[in-house]
Design a protein around this nucleic acid. Sequence first.
DNA 1: TAGTGGTCTAGACCACATT
DNA 2: ATGTGGTCTAGACCACTAC
Lengths: 239, 239
Amino acid sequence: MKHIRQQPLYTQVKKELMQRIADKTWLPGQMIPNETQLAEEFGVSQGTVRRALDDMMEDRLIFRKQGVGTFIAEETVSSALKSFFKIKMDDQSKRNYPTNENINITIAKPSEEEISLLQLAHGDKVTRIFRVRSLEGIKSVYEKISLPTNLFPSIETIDPLPDALYPLFQAKYQIRIGTANDVIKAISADSECSAELHVPKSQPILYVNRLSYSIQNRPIEIRKSYCNTTSSHYHIVLS
Amino acid sequence: MKHIRQQPLYTQVKKELMQRIADKTWLPGQMIPNETQLAEEFGVSQGTVRRALDDMMEDRLIFRKQGVGTFIAEETVSSALKSFFKIKMDDQSKRNYPTNENINITIAKPSEEEISLLQLAHGDKVTRIFRVRSLEGIKSVYEKISLPTNLFPSIETIDPLPDALYPLFQAKYQIRIGTANDVIKAISADSECSAELHVPKSQPILYVNRLSYSIQNRPIEIRKSYCNTTSSHYHIVLS
DNA sequence: TAGTGGTCTAGACCACATT
DNA sequence: ATGTGGTCTAGACCACTAC
């Protein structure tokens, strides 16, 4: 390994290893060479490789089994999903990811709120996605999503629209969500919610108003979620 | 350092160092001995001390300045509060921290849930704190808090009980909250909530069920918060 | 210049899982 | 028995900060 003294050796090793994941040299689930072999290949010590692997483990890019080996993490996209998908069934044994229903996509002139939050320029359009998401057969979330149309060309023609949007954003539009702001309230179901979620009017609804940003910190998505939390909840770990 | 082979040396070193922070041997902002000195004192290698310090840095218990030294982190009220106090006014310009009202503290035999979640031993008691918190004069949150009585002796005699409990936990009981799990639902106000928060029955209420852990990962607190989110909200940043 | 944290090495041994 | 990751050591040198 060339000694660029600008950055530590373990960072350089990590970058090379990440490259191999990115270019599919190593596929998800696959076991990679052991630490000694990698150390020899890169011309560094085993400790340096270990430091690189420790960092990658922290990023959940790999996982290790003592006595077995080091493996590429499955679907590095969906692991990012874990960070942003917060609605869980109360019964943790049922860990179904929600399915889409009643999808409706329109392109429209943006509202004041959309212009402001998504930082739209004059004349920019907005693509709105309406959908109901079901968990274990129960209509749990009614979502209204607003996206800048120019960032997501032809997204309205994708059929079927995948249940998880963030992997789609990344795979098809090279947009990776980095952070999100969730503002959460308890409200009463209005007639729209009531109809979409099949709940009585005035049922308590968990309202999550999200603004998502790309890793470059550009606002990407407004997502208003109306959740029937009768048998599910919003779960967050603070530290 | 005694070689308990049950756990790695670096975790034992870490525990001893954390103890010195807890018992005020080392105070916030103070510089601690360098890695070599600590290694000599504990009878381990410098690399082992470093691993312990790396872990503590991850937990933000210490910080380092290259070329200067290693310092105990300033445990500011605001830093702990920022992480764990999530209810904000909708109008961000008003950033009042809530005040206590109607405080009621009792010591009781724990419920099944309390025994299980707080990992109580046979005969352990539980201290329950009930209080209403107001934001800008509006009764916003009704809280029921459960604590292991043996960890918080005489907390029921503290008068007035401070608005923020976590700084008290640390200052008086050397217990620092490190993580918390929040489970959030929207429910209807029951008669108890209705009375405490002065809202009509069946008003939508944001119910936050929290289980907090110390930095040593021991469960410390169950906190059930019932929030009137008419003019406030729960705010979380995901990444 | 002296003292600190940051990186790196080469080698040893332990704990765990598979064969 | 073998091979893997996990821990630990002793020592070296680099990079940064203060004096």
